[in-house]
Simulated scan of single mutants.
Amino acid sequence: MNMIVHYPKAEADQKDLGKKAALIHNQAVLQYLKQLSCPNYQKQALLKEMYPDHL
């Protein structure tokens, strides 16, 4: 499959795209963690390992 991607040229639009991509990534990570069968304290430990500066 071929795909053509057009990135925004304006700096403000690039930042907005970056924020939206980060939001989608975070939602995917949280959804994945919710599906794990381990206890919540282990899920929290995983989050702390992935994002040590944010928790």
Rank of each mutant, 00 (worst) to 15 (best):
G18W: 01
K9F: 06
C38D: 10
K9Q: 15
Q35V: 07
N26T: 08
Q14I: 12
Y32K: 08
P39A: 00
M3G: 13
G18I: 07
P39F: 00
L23Q: 13
A12F: 03
L36P: 06
L17I: 02
P39V: 03
L46A: 12
N26K: 13
P52H: 01
K15Q: 08
A22P: 05
L47N: 04
L30I: 09
P39S: 02
V29Q: 00
M3C: 11
K34C: 10
Y51T: 09
P8L: 03
P52G: 02
M3F: 14
L30W: 01
N26Y: 13
D16W: 03
A22Y: 04
E49I: 08
Q27N: 13
K9S: 15
V5M: 11
Q44A: 12
E11Y: 12
D16K: 12
Q42G: 08
L55E: 12
K34G: 04
P8T: 00
Y32W: 05
V5C: 05
H25E: 04
K34E: 02
Q31S: 14
E11H: 10
N2W: 11
E49V: 12
S37G: 15
A45R: 08
H54M: 14
P52F: 01
H6P: 08
I4M: 11
D16R: 04
D13T: 08
A28D: 09
A21L: 08
L46C: 09
S37L: 03
A12N: 03
L55Q: 11
V5N: 07
A10P: 09
N26D: 12
N40V: 14
I4K: 15
Q27W: 03
Y32A: 14
P8G: 06
L17S: 02
L46D: 06
M50Y: 11
P52N: 00
L30M: 11
M1L: 14
Q31W: 09
H6M: 10
K19V: 00
P39D: 01
A12K: 14
K20N: 00
P39R: 02
M1H: 11
N2V: 11
A10G: 12
A12P: 03
L55C: 06
H6L: 11
L46E: 04
K48F: 11
V29I: 03
K48I: 09
K34D: 05
K48Q: 15
G18H: 01
Q42N: 08
N26L: 10
H54K: 10
Q31C: 04
M1D: 14
M50T: 00
H54D: 15
L47M: 07
Q31E: 10
D53Y: 02
A28S: 07
E49F: 09
L17R: 02
L33P: 00
